[in-house]
Write a protein that binds this DNA or RNA. Structure first.
Lengths: 210, 210
DNA sequence: AGATCAATTTTGACAGTGTCAAGATTGACA
DNA sequence: TGTCAATCTTGACACTGTCAAAATTGATCT
């Protein structure tokens, strides 16, 4: 009894994309663990094993979801990145710089908090722990990783961060902080949503050394 | 066919503890996802449903494993904590202080890298995401969380960290960094084991402002 | 046009999982 | 010695991922 889809043909048409979007919704509602290929197939209105002709594995489906997440995230990042570049032309005091870093962190954490399950999927062990991640996913993910490095270099060039420090290490520490706080927030450990702003202020001041 | 246990009596004797230790081993080998109550029961040499008389749930078993992990971790922390307190009496230059912080971070990351699956269980979403964590687990975990805060305060008192900063926020940022880097390392994202030392140096210098 | 073929979808099946209910076995205590 | 609660077992159910073989389709070729 197909409910969600009103397909008249035997072939679905665009099952692959439908599966991805439906799975993304499902993850948002029931979490990564709550997703099952059978329930997903039922939701799309197709038999249990139909997805296997578009994804080798359950893991491949999860990778595809994360991959789309990375593409969306990157476009958002690049948009914000250029906006921020403009802003800096005008004000160049250290206070404004600290604020800039703080807003970058806030933006990152807001994304994590608004899409906790997607964040977990994109940056979590589910797809990264082993060599599960396929080439396509890596190609989508690495630009997102590199963006952090590029931003760090720009900030160093502006004098916002220590120009003499190793850019990659600096980037790893800053992203590590963001990632860690994000995870603590999402899982509700030791931190609270109400403290996010103060945490970002604290971190931004530490990193900008004033 | 019971292999691991050579019990002659119908009652097992200390099944609960045996389950915990066997499960801890199993996690170390096959990861959190690789554990199953049935395989675990077989390993201990008991029927599939026997564990249910000692743990309400699979989650309760996982919580018990994590709980034991927290107790062990705390005793290790307190030991190191007192050791470090002695050290500081002698040297008080900022360079030595930075080194002290760096070693603290290295110690944290070493624990995470040597027990990746246990770390994931203790500080991961599996047991924290919902209100799954029972009172007993919280009682074991909170001292470990608070330790970070106490250490931060001590460091502030010594002038190693900014004394005017909010201790809780500072602690959250530092632990966030440690947690984030640990996760990135464990999952093999953006970081490499060979870079750990440099990452810790970079972070320690940032936090100590010199 | 009709035939062919690969892509797609289905049904059937299997092993594995967590967990509940009901019965069997035991040790401790009256 | 008999009773009882704690402990363990067997049986059963719904659910999962995934394979193999059959059914259906749209496109491509003659």
């Amino acid at each position: 009894m197909p409910e969600e889809s009103n397909r008249s043909t035997y072939h679905h048409g665009d099952l692959r994309q439908n599966l991805i979007t439906a799975a993304t919704d499902m993850i948002k509602e029931s979490g990564i663990e709550g997703i099952s290929l059978r329930k997903l197939a039922a939701k799309v209105g197709v038999s249990r094993t139909a997805p296997y002709h578009h994804f080798k594995d359950k893991n491949e489906l999860l990778c595809a979801i994360a991959e789309q997440g990375f593409r969306d995230r990157l476009s958002h990042l690049e948009q914000r990145y250029s906006k921020q570049a403009e802003q800096t032309e005008q004000t160049n005091q250290t206070k404004a710089s600290t604020l800039q870093l703080k807003h970058y962190m806030l933006d990152y954490l807001k994304f994590a908090q608004m899409n906790p399950e997607l964040y977990e999927l994109m940056f979590g062990r589910t797809i990264w722990k082993q060599q599960i991640a396929n080439e396509s996913l890596k190609n989508a993910a690495y630009p997102s990783f590199n963006h952090q490095l590029e931003v760090t270099k720009q900030w160093q060039a502006k004098g916002l961060l220590d120009p003499h420090a190793n850019s990659l290490r600096l980037s790893q520490v800053i992203w590590g902080t963001l990632h860690g706080v994000a995870k603590l927030l999402i899982d509700g450990i030791y931190t609270d949503t109400a403290q996010v702003e103060e945490i970002c202020s604290c971190a931004a001041e530490l990193f900008t050394k004033q």
